[in-house]
Simulated assay, not measured.
Amino acid sequence: MSETHATIAPGTPVFPPGRYGRRREPGRRRPVLRALLVAVLLAAMGLVAARLYTQYGDPDYQADVITYTGITDSRVVVDFRVTLPPGGSATCLLRARAHDGAEVGHAEVAVTTRPGERHVTVRHEVPTTARPFIGEVLRCRPAD
């Protein structure tokens, strides 16, 4: 018959002293370590987000299509406006698509503003391999 102690809750197993090693206290946690790991993870995610934003999401280089005209079997003329840093320059990628969505032409256009200005309006002809349905500006990025 095993011995029970009055201080042990009913249903808790009783082990002979020294036989099974040291027992851990139930519910012992390390909240400082967990908080530190969460803080390091959030900092790393913030750095990655900032790097991706500066690489792909620069709001200083924004293009808006004004109109696309002059559609023939071999070209489309795209008029667009680019917002740049004052006196800056950019390279914009234009694309022409057919009615089924397939790309039928593309062109890279170098855009430069005059000193002190932030906006420039550009008209560029995009050569195509088939009749285009739409002309669009995919993106503008800082000039190399």
Rank of each mutant, 00 (worst) to 15 (best):
R141N: 05
G27H: 13
P127L: 15
A143K: 07
A44H: 01
C140G: 07
A130M: 14
V48W: 02
T12P: 00
H124M: 05
V77K: 14
P31T: 09
G116F: 03
H124N: 13
R139Q: 14
G135N: 09
P85K: 03
A96S: 06
P132N: 12
L93Q: 13
A98R: 08
R28M: 15
H5N: 10
Q55K: 12
M1P: 07
R139F: 15
V48H: 01
Y68P: 00
A102I: 00
P13F: 12
G70H: 04
P13G: 06
Y56K: 11
L33G: 13
R30C: 03
D73V: 11
R95C: 03
L33P: 01
T129E: 14
R30L: 11
R75E: 15
L47T: 03
V40H: 00
A39F: 07
V48G: 01
P132V: 12
P31Y: 13
Y56L: 13
T91H: 03
V48K: 00
G57P: 04
T12H: 06
G101T: 04
A43M: 06
L84Q: 06
A98I: 03
T12L: 12
A63N: 05
D58R: 12
Q62W: 06
V109E: 15
H124F: 15
L52F: 08
D60N: 11
T69M: 08
A143D: 09
R34Y: 07
P142T: 04
G87T: 05
L33I: 09
L42C: 10
R118H: 05
P31F: 11
R118T: 13
T91L: 13
C140V: 07
A35R: 15
R114A: 14
V111G: 01
E25V: 15
V122Q: 10
E108V: 05
M45P: 00
P132M: 12
T113S: 10
V77Q: 14
G11S: 10
A39V: 13
S89K: 11
L84M: 07
